[in-house]
Simulated assay, not measured.
Amino acid sequence: MGSFQQAMQRSGLKRTKQRECVYNVLEKADVPINAEQIYKELLSESINLSTVYRILESFVEKDIAIKATLGQSVTAIYELNRQEHKHHLICAECHSIVAISGCPLEQYVEDLSKTTHYQILEHKLEITGICPRCQAKHGK
């Protein structure tokens, strides 16, 4: 059984062609993407943008996808919830996103929890810079 089928079974959502199309775009994406990018990928499927948003919100609600905003952006981005803890490097110019492997905050979060007695639920790390492509454009 494929991962889409498993996700629908676990979540209790009905399997539909439109949900499968959105799921497949998220599955192929190397980095989080926004609803408009998904919509553009699915133009040939005749799925409208509001449907893409509804599907994404249902995926988030059922923990199939993760919704976030990065940097100063107000645009939500989405990625499949692969149960992996990730952080991101964001280009301030072209807004490209690179996932950072490993977590440099693990020990800090553990120590912080011990000293403050907080039960820490999650943390996020975003590093903003200028990607090599944008640096090359500016001759840097």
Results as ranks from 00 to 15, higher is better:
residue 101 S to Y: 12
residue 112 L to S: 07
residue 65 A to W: 05
residue 87 H to R: 07
residue 111 D to V: 02
residue 105 L to D: 02
residue 85 H to M: 11
residue 66 I to T: 12
residue 87 H to F: 11
residue 99 A to T: 10
residue 71 G to Y: 04
residue 84 E to G: 09
residue 75 T to W: 03
residue 73 S to D: 14
residue 84 E to C: 09
residue 83 Q to R: 15
residue 67 K to D: 09
residue 89 L to V: 00
residue 81 N to T: 06
residue 93 E to C: 15
residue 78 Y to F: 13
residue 94 C to E: 10
residue 110 E to M: 04
residue 104 P to G: 10
residue 92 A to Q: 13
residue 109 V to Q: 14
residue 102 G to C: 02
residue 76 A to V: 00
residue 84 E to V: 13
residue 86 K to F: 12
residue 114 K to M: 12
residue 71 G to L: 13
residue 75 T to F: 08
residue 70 L to C: 03
residue 113 S to C: 02
residue 97 I to P: 00
residue 108 Y to D: 09
residue 105 L to K: 10
residue 89 L to C: 01
residue 62 K to I: 06
residue 113 S to F: 01
residue 107 Q to F: 04
residue 113 S to D: 05
residue 99 A to S: 14
residue 108 Y to E: 13
residue 77 I to M: 08
residue 70 L to A: 03
residue 69 T to S: 14
residue 66 I to Q: 03
residue 77 I to F: 01
residue 97 I to W: 00
residue 94 C to F: 05
residue 94 C to K: 03
residue 93 E to Q: 13
residue 99 A to E: 11
residue 113 S to T: 05
residue 62 K to W: 12
residue 104 P to D: 00
residue 99 A to Y: 05
residue 72 Q to Y: 10
residue 67 K to E: 14
residue 72 Q to T: 02
residue 78 Y to M: 03
residue 97 I to S: 00
residue 95 H to C: 04
residue 113 S to Q: 06
residue 89 L to Y: 06
residue 87 H to A: 09
residue 84 E to I: 12
residue 73 S to C: 05
residue 100 I to S: 03
residue 69 T to E: 13
residue 104 P to I: 12
residue 114 K to Q: 13
residue 92 A to K: 15
residue 81 N to L: 08
residue 106 E to M: 06
residue 81 N to Q: 09
residue 77 I to Y: 06
residue 112 L to A: 08
residue 90 I to Q: 05
residue 96 S to V: 05
residue 103 C to N: 13
residue 73 S to Y: 05
residue 114 K to C: 09
residue 92 A to W: 09
residue 83 Q to S: 15
residue 101 S to G: 08
residue 95 H to D: 09
residue 112 L to Q: 05
residue 72 Q to L: 11
residue 76 A to C: 05
residue 102 G to L: 02
residue 76 A to L: 03
residue 105 L to S: 10
residue 111 D to H: 02
residue 78 Y to C: 02
residue 81 N to V: 04
residue 73 S to T: 08
residue 71 G to A: 13
residue 72 Q to N: 08
residue 111 D to M: 04
residue 92 A to P: 08
residue 67 K to Q: 11
residue 68 A to D: 03
residue 75 T to R: 06
residue 98 V to G: 14
residue 97 I to M: 01
residue 66 I to W: 00
residue 103 C to S: 11
residue 67 K to R: 07
residue 96 S to N: 11
residue 94 C to A: 08
residue 82 R to P: 15
residue 65 A to Y: 04
residue 109 V to D: 14
residue 112 L to P: 00
residue 85 H to A: 11
residue 75 T to C: 00
residue 99 A to K: 10
residue 68 A to F: 05
residue 111 D to N: 07
residue 97 I to K: 03
residue 86 K to V: 11
residue 75 T to I: 15
residue 112 L to D: 02
residue 74 V to T: 07
residue 76 A to G: 06
residue 110 E to A: 11
residue 82 R to N: 14
residue 114 K to D: 10
residue 79 E to H: 13
residue 78 Y to W: 07
residue 96 S to Y: 07
residue 73 S to N: 09
residue 65 A to I: 01
residue 114 K to T: 10
residue 110 E to V: 01
